[in-house]
């Protein structure tokens, strides 16, 4: 996961950023994560956060399976409801259940417990699908440009703050660009983050043309050897034609100023979002071609099942998950771990 990020890291500093180490390891390795401002162990915290998701889904699934000897329609119906409550979406759930039903018909599956394994496998399959072919064009030289977008209030600016912190910790020179010139005080919000982390922020006044802000920012960045440039765009509903056109223009301007940019077009999604997330992913993808997703606000009770749905439909990889309001509350997304956490019996504080 996140090869591009690691590649960047391995070249320069030997990864002091904690989370990069987390993904492949298991709970036992949690203590070895060297992130300085961490309270509990990173991994534990992630498990705790994801715990809500897991508890909600798994405990109910387990009760469901308990005391059942055969797979009948009633069981499948109840299962359907549980999966839908996790925001997996009716279509995805239907797909999942059709596939499991096929297996039942072929008599490969009799045990309700095996049904769970099959479901787990299927969901993980959707997530893994998105990972394949998610190669990223790294710039031969010059900065790595990330353009961050999404609908209003999903947490773009906060994600950028956390992301900048992550890169900064990895020893990168980061530049933030305040291209949200629409919302009141959006620029100030990014500037506060910049101060907090200690990275430069390029901004103009509110109401300026976002494309020109970016144009000037890239001009400013050229002689200054930045490793990573993160661009904050204004939140916009994906149904607003003119605002989507603006986004296309921003991308064009960027590519003109710096061939190959943006190297990553990241859509930020709110985990509490329901099936509208699909529509968001579709429209933004059509406008500017999304290369990665970040799922925020996973620290609530929202199940975040929409991710499975989006991976299934668009094969866009999920890069990060946001699990809190602190600088370090941004984690790499690991599909295997995610599903394991969703279905694991009781990971608890392993």
């Amino acid at each position: 996961m996140l090869n591009w990020f690691k590649k960047k890291l391995s070249g320069e500093t030997p990864a002091p950023a904690a989370s990069t180490a987390v993904a492949p390891e298991t709970a036992s390795a949690a203590a070895s994560t060297p992130a300085p401002p961490e309270k509990g162990s990173l991994f534990q915290r992630l498990r705790e956060r994801l715990g809500k998701t897991r508890d909600a889904l798994v405990s109910r699934v387990d009760t469901l399976f308990l005391g059942r000897k055969v797979i009948d329609d009633e069981l499948l119906d109840e299962l359907e409801e549980i999966l839908i409550t996790a925001d997996l979406g009716a279509a995805t759930v239907l797909d999942l259940l059709t596939k499991t039903r096929e297996q039942i018909k072929r008599d490969q599956l009799r045990d309700p417990q095996a049904l769970k394994a099959v479901l787990k496998q299927l969901i993980q399959g959707y997530l893994a699908q998105a990972e394949q072919g998610a190669t990223l064009a790294m710039p031969e030289s010059g900065p790595f440009v990330i353009m961050v977008l999404g609908v209003n209030g999903v947490g773009k600016t906060t994600t950028i703050g956390k992301l900048a912190y992550k890169f900064k910790q990895a020893g990168q020179r980061v530049l933030l660009v305040a291209a949200d010139t629409f919302r009141a005080a959006a620029i100030e919000q990014l500037q506060v983050w910049g101060e907090r982390i200690g990275v430069e922020v390029v901004a103009q006044q509110q109401g300026a043309d976002p494309s020109s802000v970016i144009y000037d920012a890239l001009d400013y960045a050229r002689p200054r050897q930045f490793d990573v440039i993160i661009i904050d765009t204004a939140g916009r509903l994906h149904t607003k034609v003119n605002l989507m056109e603006e986004l296309k223009k921003i991308k064009r301007v960027m590519a003109k100023q710096l061939p190959g940019a943006p190297h990553e077009t990241m859509l930020v999604l709110d985990a509490t979002t329901g099936q509208n997330g699909i529509s968001q992913a579709r429209q933004f993808n059509e406008a500017v071609e999304i290369t990665g997703l970040t799922l925020t606000k996973l620290d609530g009770t929202a199940k975040g099942g929409i991710v499975v749905n989006i991976c299934r439909e668009f094969k866009i990889p999920i890069r990060f998950i946001g699990i809190g309001e602190q600088m370090e509350d941004l984690r790499d997304f690991d599909p295997a771990q995610f599903v394991e956490a969703l279905f694991g019996n009781n990971g608890g504080a392993a």
Binding site: V151, G153, T272, G274, N276, T301
Partner: peptide
């Protein structure tokens, strides 16, 4: 409340 909220709207 955000109109785009999913199933979790009830809990919140």
């Amino acid at each position: 409340a955000d109109a785009m909220t999913g199933q979790d709207a009830v809990t919140v």
